[in-house]
């Protein structure tokens, strides 16, 4: 304990916090560029601090985003959805966000997330539309068109769906 006291001086003066007391330590790892080590620590936290899993996944999503680790970011949000920890609007935004941040040519996880969201929110134009864009980006034009149309059936004035349909037409024209 005495060694711990001496070692703690000048390192982390924060009192034990309600909100993830160990977070300052993980933050230091992230700041030092040890992103993977920080993520490993969060993995340990998920096992041990299971009552705070929502907060842990939120922190993972945040540090993953800071480090441009899109897959980790989406995985964290996917877990938050499974824990039913985010509301419908956040899910729609997330789906849209996930699509925009997608790495070129790698839409697998974004598509999975969009499909999962659509299962939960089948009548949200934004969710249908985002799934349409993910499919359009993979050149799966017929499937994409179907979801843009569904979005417009719910809201005929939904601009992104109209843009999506225009994108499908354009892609078809290019193919021909």
């Amino acid at each position: 304990m005495a060694a711990g006291l001496l070692y703690s001086i000048q390192r982390d003066r924060s009192l034990p916090r309600l909100r993830l007391a160990y977070y300052p330590g993980i933050e230091q790892l992230v700041d030092a560029g040890e992103y993977r080590q920080a993520l490993d620590q969060f993995d340990v936290a998920i096992d041990l601090d299971f009552l705070r899993r929502v907060q842990i996944y939120q922190e993972i999503a945040r540090i993953a985003l800071q480090n441009d680790e899109l897959d980790d970011h989406l995985r964290a949000w996917d877990n938050l959805i499974k824990l039913r920890a985010i509301d419908a609007l956040t899910q729609v935004n997330l789906s849209s966000f996930g699509f925009r941040r997608g790495k070129p040519g790698d839409y697998r996880q974004t598509e999975e997330l969009s499909r999962e969201l659509r299962r939960q929110l089948p009548h949200q134009p934004g969710v249908n539309c985002n799934l349409g864009f993910v499919l359009l980006a993979q050149d799966r034009l017929d499937e994409a068109e179907q979801f843009f149309i569904q979005a417009l059936q719910v809201n005929p004035y939904f601009g992104p769906a109209r843009q999506g349909l225009a994108g499908v037409q354009k892609a078809r024209a290019l193919h021909e």
Partner: peptide, 10 residues
């Protein structure tokens, strides 16, 4: 609660 964990970190 505060110092003993630091000993383990050390």
């Amino acid at each position: 609660f505060h110092c003993l964990p630091w000993a383990y970190r050390l």
